[in-house]
Amino acid sequence: MNPTTPTPQTAPSVECTECAATIALQRPPLCGEIVRCRECQAELEVTSVTPLRVELAPEVEEDWGE
């Protein structure tokens, strides 16, 4: 269970794992949050908040819907 996620007080930035551009987040991220790189349009998943890490988000899985 991941009840709640620590929220840093300042909005950080992180390097895009696809194109190495700097992604400036508008607000403190949550673990599991999806962010988009404005340079390459990749969707990235925040996998860790402290330290801030992102990975390429899965585009689709078998039973994803809506």
Partner: peptide
């Protein structure tokens, strides 16, 4: 309950 935090989940949390 979530698997990824998309824009929708952020808005619901807000």
């Amino acid at each position: 309950l979530h698997s990824r935090v998309r824009v929708e989940e952020r808005l619901l949390l807000d």
